[in-house]
């Protein structure tokens, strides 16, 4: 039987991902071998204890939440290149919206992959150029005048993205939006763990949609 595009993406995606995992694990190994300096296990464990419970949970939740949005190729790529919520997911959503393709279609799959691949290449090149030209760029990038612009990337991003999706689906948007605004007003400290709240918002939106759909109101 002939392999479909999706089968082929899974095949190559797994090879790239397995290689990426191997290479990533080899980095600390190479550092320890090269410098003949293996760290004491207790420090690694103590360090991990401080971050692993939350980040392992968030990591797994991110895969379950974002992979349906990103498509197969987009997921294999963006989970290697990182920076999902602040870059890859909005970039993919924007590209699918502008190209007028549905995320559930194969057209959506390829447009999302093209957007994420482009974004990954540009990010890698910008960081590489920035590191090489750091002497010139650092005073500009760290100037107090520009600081508010970089502090407000997320509001600038989600304001524009939000208005498009909310205006398209106000009936679905209202319940999770009101819930999240109230939640953050009551517990502002949750801002540091917004990643965990993404699936909560998604589940709430899906539940409300299902009720409205069953009543024939969507």
């Amino acid at each position: 039987m002939k392999k479909t595009y999706n089968d082929s993406v899974h095949f190559y995606g797994r090879i790239w991902t397995a290689t990426a995992i191997l290479m990533l694990l080899m980095v600390p190994v190479a550092i320890c071998v090269h410098y003949h300096a293996w760290p004491e296990m207790q420090y690694v464990l103590k360090g991990l204890l401080g971050v692993a419970p939350i980040y392992w949970t968030v990591g797994i939740i991110e895969v379950l939440t974002y992979s349906p949005m990103l498509g197969t190729g987009g997921t294999y790529l963006s989970f290697v290149t990182g920076n999902l919520t602040n870059l890859k997911v909005p970039c993919a959503l924007n590209a699918m919206e502008a190209a007028k393709v549905s995320a559930t279609s194969e057209e959506g799959e390829v447009v999302s992959t093209i957007a994420i691949a482009t974004s990954s290449i540009v990010t890698t090149l910008v960081i590489a150029a920035g590191v090489l030209l750091l002497g010139y760029l650092q005073p500009i990038l760290e100037s107090p005048v520009l600081a508010p612009a970089f502090e407000n990337i997320m509001p600038a991003l989600f304001g524009g993205l939000g208005v498009v999706y909310i205006s398209k689906n106000p009936k679905i948007a209202i319940a999770p939006l009101v819930f999240m605004v109230l939640l953050f007003l009551l517990v502002p400290s949750l801002a540091s763990s917004v990643g965990i709240l993404v699936p909560v918002g998604a589940l709430l939106a899906i539940a409300v949609s299902r009720i409205l759909y069953n009543k024939g109101k969507l």
């Binding site: 939000g162 007003l185 502002p188 917004v194 709430l204 949609s209």
Partner: peptide, 29 residues
């Protein structure tokens, strides 16, 4: 159900957007 499939996906997007929009209100105190 293709129609529900599209609504399901839009709901996931809106769930994510809602979480980040809600976060904007965290500092108003």
């Amino acid at each position: 159900d293709p129609k529900w499939g599209n609504i399901f996906m839009d709901s996931m997007f809106l769930g994510m957007i809602s979480a980040f929009m809600g976060m904007l209100f965290a500092d108003i105190r």
